[in-house]
Write a protein that binds this DNA or RNA. Sequence first.
DNA 1: TCTGGGGTCCTAGGACCC
DNA 2: TCTGGGGTCCTAGGACCC
Length: 404
Amino acid sequence: MDAFYASVELLRYPELKGLPVVIGGRRRHQPQPQPDGSRRFATLREYTGRGVITTATYAARAFGVNSAMGLMKAAALCPQAVLLPADFDEYRRYSRAFKAAVAEVAPVIEDRGIDEIYIELTDLPGAQDALGHDACGGVRAIAQEIRNNVRRATGLTCSIGVTPNKLLSKIASELDKPDGLTLITEDDIPARIWPLAVRRINGIGPKAGAKLAALGVETIGELAARPREELIAHFGRSQGRWLHECANGRDERPVVTYSEPVSVSRETTFERDLHAVADRATLGAVFTGLCEQLAGDLRRKGYRSRTIGIKLRFDDFRTVTRDHTLAQPVADAAAIRHTAGQCLKRVDLSRRLRLLGVRASGLVHARQEAGAACGHPAVHRGGAPAEEARAPAAPQLFDGEPSA
DNA sequence: TCTGGGGTCCTAGGACCC
DNA sequence: TCTGGGGTCCTAGGACCC
């Protein structure tokens, strides 16, 4: 989807169309209705505090404003940009709507988050001609039908890349944004893929990009020109092979239509950095709140968790995690709070904190817990000793929160 | 003026088992 | 007199993505 969150907001506030608009920040900048019936919007200029941009309209991007940019930095580039708070419930509604619209045309879909999907077109009627050859015309018509359906259902535009695999489709979908449709065949790879920067490959981020640049590799074509053995020497067997395959446009990954969640988490960044001792009451309350939210998430999704973990980010942005595996899965806030409290004890808390998070992994379905529910004792086979899930004792470190 | 929140996957070392 | 070998689980950190 094109500038998804921002595009959803423009449906709500059509008077903002064409203006630089960014979504992000923490509450407190809802549009205010005016006596004359118009609405007053907050701008980046007025914003102070932490936060990043989650989405910017194309008009805002023209000022150099982009996703993940700090709001204060964005304000320096485009102070007049309208700032709207994120409304995830609304985005999720539109997400379901666009996916349903796609499914009417092509039902084999892999979810890639709120605004992205992979669609399998291979076995669709019309995708191939009678001889089994690719009929680009047929595939183009199907993609066009998908776009029309999405627009009819949501009023939103999307960009589609139609290619032999997921690697190329992801790249192709970004070549003609917004509202684009790009077809690429294997024969097009040298002309259309090789000139692109290696960073366009999904999976090459800042670190791998910099490492490749240091080796004199800027484009995908330059990557393709490097011997496989050289890439393996620099990046290891696994990543080296993968880079070589990517550079040549090869990707065998299937479209995966179903997957179980691996973890569920909640985290929050504070308005100001907090200290374990000086802000103990505040931190304790936040900590308990996160555990309660996590427990609610687990219950709603129907999971219990055997491994509870915490995440801390210090004022110097250093991040540490600690986790703890229990013999029995838990889901209630008190047990999560207790186990997370045990984890917290293992961290040096002399620095101020900017972020606190709680995570549940080792998920099992709440109703049929493997082993335990089937009457097997939780057999312990290797690894560090797992502890019994205990009833919560006194709150551990961020003590002094109002008792739950 | 520092840098959100929710995820996945990978690596590497240690513990432990057969 | 070494220090096997293969496997799983757990933990911590990091890269990356939406």
